[in-house]
């Protein structure tokens, strides 16, 4: 019944309407014992080194090619935990709903969130719903909790000279998919939003001495690797021709004057691993359905006169060298 209506201020009252909304939309989708207790806070087991991350999701449109805000918020959160080598366990979701939101759309998003959480192996253990005036929008804030196994030390500053730099697939897909939706440009491009647990587990359990992991989100590969170069005090040197970009994203970027190196993903990681394990790491990444396009794209070098500490250099197919910096401003389309 509820599934056909719209969100009104009443749904945020804390009274009967709120109860119905939670019962029909949230509780049924999550089916969590912890949630079903309806306590003020969740009490869950766990011990050891805890990884915690929080994130807010404000994407429009709410549903896009390749995903929706529900899937996105789980992927974004668990991927942040994974990048420190943590095993994601729990997630909390705070929903801010705008008046006029279709309840059926909310239901679709919540179901997708629950499905992705199951795929990523995390349990939704706490939630909140608020309603604000507005125009049918929906925002989700999440907190993720994971546990870091003994002996795992994955951090931004760990890259060593000689290490190989890998990415798990093509660059810019999520950003291009969202932009295409917003500009109403018809493309084949789909968001790549995906949980990266299988890949990270594969690397850690496969004995790869992973130095650094980063999910390549806002700011794109250029920004992410520049930050890693700075954090480690090394020079990162890339081969432009080795960086995977799909033909559709390349054409889309060409059309709008955008650079795929500065376009975000939501289901791709960059990894720094010892050079002698690069081949093995590549195979592990490619075994995951989300890592079939993985590639070795460059290596870490000791700082020198031509490759200063904290620099990100890229060898172009012509044999030139381009120095990359972090994303400046927003990627605006060019005008001529």
């Amino acid at each position: 019944m509820l599934q056909s209506g719209m969100i009104t201020m009443e749904h945020g009252s804390g009274g009967q309407a709120t109860g119905e909304l939670i019962g029909e939309v949230f509780a049924s989708a999550f089916d969590s014992e912890v949630l079903n207790r309806m306590e003020d806070s969740a009490v869950v087991p766990g011990s050891g080194r805890i990884a915690v991350t929080t994130d807010s999701f404000v994407v429009t449109p709410l549903v896009f090619r390749g995903g929706d805000i529900g899937r996105l918020c789980v992927c974004g959160t668990v991927n942040d935990l994974l990048m420190r080598g943590a095993v994601p366990r729990y997630i909390t979701c705070g929903f801010i709903l705008e008046e006029g939101l279709e309840i059926s759309l909310l239901g679709q998003v919540v179901k997708s969130l629950a499905k992705t959480a199951r795929e990523a192996g995390v349990e939704v253990i706490a939630g909140d719903t608020k309603v604000v005036e507005g125009n049918g929008g929906l925002y989700i804030n999440t907190t993720g909790v994971g546990f870091v196994p003994e002996g795992v030390d994955i951090a931004a500053a760990n890259a060593k000279a000689g290490d190989a730099i890998l990415v798990s697939g093509t660059m810019g897909d999520h950003h291009a998919a969202i932009l295409a939706e917003r500009l109403q440009i018809q493309t084949e491009i789909e968001s790549d939003c995906a949980p990266l647990g299988e890949m990270v587990r594969g690397l850690v359990e496969g004995g790869i001495r992973v130095r650094t992991l980063r999910d390549i989100t806002r700011g794109g590969l250029g920004t992410v690797l520049k930050e890693l170069a700075e954090a480690s005090g090394k020079c990162f040197v890339l081969e432009e021709s080795a960086i995977p970009v799909s033909a559709a994203v390349r054409d889309f970027c060409g059309l709008l004057g955008l650079d795929p190196l500065y376009m975000g993903n939501e289901g791709k990681l960059a990894a720094v691993v010892p050079a002698e394990q690069a081949g093995e790491a590549l195979e592990i990444l490619r075994r995951s359905p989300y890592g079939s396009g993985a590639a070795v794209i460059g290596r870490v070098e000791e700082a020198s006169e031509n490759a200063k500490a904290g620099e990100l250099l890229m060898k172009t197919p012509l044999g030139g060298v381009r120095k990359l910096t972090i994303l400046q401003g927003e990627g605006l389309p060019r005008i001529c």
Partner: peptide
């Protein structure tokens, strides 16, 4: 020119 690293060539 910048993207291709042409000055260095």
């Amino acid at each position: 020119i910048a993207k291709n690293g042409i000055p260095g060539l």
